[in-house]
């Protein structure tokens, strides 16, 4: 299959480059629909990989790349379940999302995230699976999970630790604040800064450049420089589930879902 069009995303393979477009109202929240289609997407890697040199992840939504996990869906689903089922459901979702993110992370082609607008929480974690992040000047990054009494659960902290200094991660994580693309570039998170609306064009130029290299060499280089921290992911899932078991999380989710605050991602 060289193209797919679903409810939350669509993708197309053309001349060795896959373009994955996130396209779910309002801001590409990652819930079950997005997860199922991302699973469909990575399932195609095996057949596409031999003739693929690069893959671009970007968003069709005006407000940004992704606002993160679908907290409304999470709250409404979890509220209907008993505690034991709730925790089993969360763990199952995390296992599935990690499998998808690890597949993107370890893909044998060059992966590029083209960011505009919000790139928060789980959306930020998706971007971090990519080899190269291109962001336009309106891009914003944040890990707001602590406001819910949680830590990022889609592999965000281990992946950020792989790339950046601990002090910067603590600032992001422990304040929940968002940073702009210029700041993100200054710390090494964003590889290339684009003018407003130009991230996808620059990502395409970068993909074209990546396509010039031998595929086998690229795969070896990537595996060498970008190890997937599986052990830390296991710990992260356990920590996340341990935190999720506390009643404060459901209370915080309820507050978020019912909030009309202009900055609901802050406590």
């Amino acid at each position: 299959m060289k193209s797919f069009s679903g409810k939350a995303l669509h993708w197309e393979w053309r001349e060795g480059v896959i373009e994955l477009t996130l396209d779910r109202e309002p801001a590409n929240e990652i819930g079950l629909a997005m997860l199922e289609e991302l699973e469909h997407f990575v399932a195609a890697f095996e057949s596409l990989a031999p003739e693929t040199s690069a893959c671009i992840l970007h968003s069709e939504r005006k407000h940004g790349f992704s606002a993160g996990a679908d907290l409304r869906e999470l709250y409404h689903t979890a509220a209907q379940l008993q505690e034991k089922e709730r925790l089993a459901g969360v763990r199952s979702f995390l296992e599935r999302i990690h499998a998808v993110f690890n597949a993107i992370d370890a893909a044998p082609f060059t992966t590029i995230a083209a960011i505009h607008g919000v790139c928060f929480g789980g959306g930020f974690e998706l971007a971090l699976t990519c080899d190269i992040i291109v962001a336009d000047k309106m891009g914003r990054f944040a890990f707001p999970e602590l406001r819910l009494g949680l830590i990022p659960g889609f592999g965000g902290i281990p992946r950020l630790k792989r790339d950046l200094g601990n002090a910067f991660i603590r600032d992001l994580l422990l304040t929940g604040r968002s940073i702009n693309a210029t700041r993100a570039q200054s710390v090494g998170l964003v590889a290339q800064l684009a003018a407003e609306g130009e991230a996808l064009r620059i990502a395409r130029a970068t993909a074209a450049q990546a396509s010039k290299f031998d595929g086998a060499t690229r795969a070896v280089a990537k595996k060498f420089i970008k190890p997937v921290p599986h052990e830390e992911f296991r710990r992260e899932i356990d920590l996340f589930c341990g935190l999720f078991a506390r009643p404060t999380v459901m209370a915080a989710l309820k507050k978020f879902v019912e909030s009309t605050d202009a900055m609901p991602y802050l406590p």
Binding site: G117, R177, Y265
Partner: peptide, 28 residues
Amino acid sequence: GIDSLQTLEMLSRLENHFGIELPDYEVQ
């Protein structure tokens, strides 16, 4: 008439214009 996502857009435009960082919690 802006919502939460447009508030973030405004924050980015202000930071880019003035060349500063303005943590969200300072304008909350």
